[in-house]
Design a protein around this nucleic acid. Structure first.
Lengths: 175, 175
DNA sequence: AAATTACGTCAATAGTACTGACATAATTCC
DNA sequence: GGAATTATGTCAGTACTATTGACGTAATTT
């Protein structure tokens, strides 16, 4: 069962006492695992994967962003994006428009079909978040947003909060 | 640039006004992306990937768990686990011990080497969490833990909080 | 005119996952 | 005791997402 030169089994659990915040590390893993599992069902119906979801999300969030900008947000390579983007364009979820100033650029926009799919994918995720915030007020929500934002690399924080809700006056942050 | 039958580009951004909590959806994506990027550097030195990290983590967290239990926690298939687990055993990070009651079972334990690697991988993640909680007190921390736990599928919450810190009396939840 | 930039594409490879099938040993059920 | 089930391991084939490196084209900048 154990090979001759194998080390001895350690029988005690690693814990927060080792100076590491395992509680939150683990919670973060489970939370994200289930968070991403929601849209996976829907994506399977289209023959799409998570990569398609991410592209669709950001094209809807920042319509008109260029290919280079998208690569920067997703932190993947051009070659990785190519297949996924091509499929989304071929299936009429995303359209490319020649850049107005620089004609080398391709501005990416969602179609009505792409907008609808992005919303359908986000709906179960939003529902999960709403349920998790059920008994929370604006204070708790702010705490969670601050925490998540602080988890992002400082130099990349510019990527977030680019799209503030264009609320007319609805106090929709409250619960 | 646009194919003949292509839909028209939508030029307005999708926002929280569409009834979806895009703010937190996006924050969660960025936060997790950077959270997992920390250990990736270290793993590369060993020729390991994220799958190895996850296995190593849970074997350290719940020493003696069986293969079946590990599959259940990770929510992957036996075949997916096989290669990764074999590599970790071959490199003497994990050892298998025959189950005491049921000899068909293989209890998984970390070696000293496996314990050390698990700690090394968790260290930068824990540092990131500590930094994100810098100005937070016990209340904020509790809010965040509650939120993350509520994001997990209810029927799977049994998987978490199995390993409470065996603190003697240190009030280590406070900052 | 030359260099750079933005984008697209081809080829090869890696890591992680999947389904389906089959084998072995140990336990449980009848 | 024999049959069924369980825990684990393994083989084969496939899919998705990602990588590096190289090359081509069109447009812009120097």
């Amino acid at each position: 069962m154990t090979s001759p030169a194998a080390g001895k089994p350690i029988r005690t659990a690693i814990t927060d006492d080792d100076g590491i915040d395992f509680a939150i590390i683990e919670l973060f893993f489970f939370a994200y695992r289930d968070f991403t599992s929601d849209p996976d069902q829907i994506l399977a119906d289209y023959g799409f994967g998570r990569a398609h979801h991410r592209v669709l999300h950001f094209v809807n969030r920042r319509p008109g962003l260029t290919v280079a900008e998208l690569l920067d947000v997703l932190k993947i390579t051009k070659q990785s994006l190519a297949r996924v983007l091509k499929q989304l364009i071929d299936t009429d979820h995303i359209v490319q428009v020649q850049g107005p100033r620089d004609r080398r650029q391709r501005e990416l926009y969602p179609t009505a079909k792409g907008r609808a799919l992005a919303l359908a994918l986000a709906r179960p995720q939003s529902r999960r978040i709403r349920a998790a915030l059920e008994d929370s007020g604006a204070t708790e929500r702010a705490t969670i947003e601050r925490f998540l934002e602080a988890m992002v690399n400082p130099e990349l924080r510019a990527q977030i909060d680019i799209v503030p809700a264009q609320t007319s006056g609805k106090n929709h942050g409250d619960h």
